[in-house]
Design a protein around this nucleic acid. Structure first.
Lengths: 172, 172
DNA sequence: TAAACCTGTAACTATAATTGTTACAGGAGG
DNA sequence: CCTCCTGTAACAATTATAGTTACAGGTTTA
């Protein structure tokens, strides 16, 4: 693992929620299961006809991680208004329509609350050397602009796009 | 420290080399020293009038790291044609004019040779779930586009710009 | 209201990536 | 030939990230 698998995991969660919405009670795992003629092993497949309730455990199995990791992510997503959930009651749902949630929203929701730049500076430069003293400040603007450019691109993709893309690939 | 302090460190090295070029034998540390009326403690100040020879040890002191780290970075930079250096002979110099070296060149020279994307995917998604099976592929394009956008922005800045920026801040 | 199940969160552990360090072979130059 | 430097391998330390355990409290159902 490298940096920030939180971001793709969060998108994964939201995609599951989005596809559950589109498909009613069934998150899509059931169809898959019927087509392949066997039980999946990811556990996000429910055992009856009641469909996917999207508990943290089921989501975790689909993602391949721990339920607590999922809850932590959902906690961040909730804070950003991207999901609805309540203590004690199973499942989560999208906070607004999938077409109104961009990848940038997700990125910002789950990145570390501090700076959260993809490009980092080094912090131990010699404070008495003309270069060491000023290099950090000199890199500030380029790095901020690069960050902006990346974020603007993320803004161009919505959760609908991702869900659609998953559907397309699934059909193949 | 977070991810990739190699990149800012590499820029730091190149900035030192660039400013050494502009100032002849003296990398600029001497002026700083005279102005402040005392010896700096970063060691990139030479002790006589012979100026900065930009050995890995001096560069390391300015950056605040180990000489071996500097040599490793220089090794990558050399491979990319951004610096010249020879075994056994002290110092390094720019491989081409500072105006012809972009931050993207530096970024590419020092990032891990593998994928090297700033946005990462999670790899343990359930292979039997329709979402888990396709989410990675669905994220590929958005993440690649975001990467491109960031890289294009880095391409807009040259080492000259950075050196100029450092000079400006230094005068204040 | 008791039982079962879920969320939310803290605290801790494990793991993996990055950085730092030691050591040494070999080139360059006085 | 002595000193200093680069280049690199091998290893240690550090740090960030993810995973885990544990538990308090909410909700639903019977």
């Amino acid at each position: 693992m490298k940096i920030n698998t939180k971001f793709p995991m969060a998108v994964h969660i939201l995609a599951l929620l989005a596809m559950k919405d589109e498909m009613g009670e069934d998150c899509g795992c059931m169809q898959e299961e019927e087509r392949e003629g066997g039980r999946g092993d990811c556990g996000c497949h429910s055992s009856g006809n009641e469909g996917c309730s999207c508990t943290s455990e089921m989501l975790a199995k689909s993602i391949g991680t721990n339920p607590v990791v999922v809850r932590r992510l959902i906690s961040s997503l909730k804070e950003a208004g991207l999901v609805n959930c309540r203590p004690g009651v199973a499942g989560a749902s999208l906070g607004r329509d999938a077409s109104q949630i961009t990848l940038l929203d997700v990125y910002r929701a789950v990145r570390g609350q501090e700076d959260g730049m993809v490009l980092d500076v080094h912090t131990k430069a010699c404070p008495r050397c003309p270069v060491g003293k000023n290099i950090t400040a000199a890199l500030e603007e380029p790095f901020a602009r690069a960050q902006e450019a990346m974020e603007e691109k993320l803004r161009e993709y919505t959760l609908s796009d991702i869900a659609f893309s998953i559907e397309e690939k699934r059909k193949k």
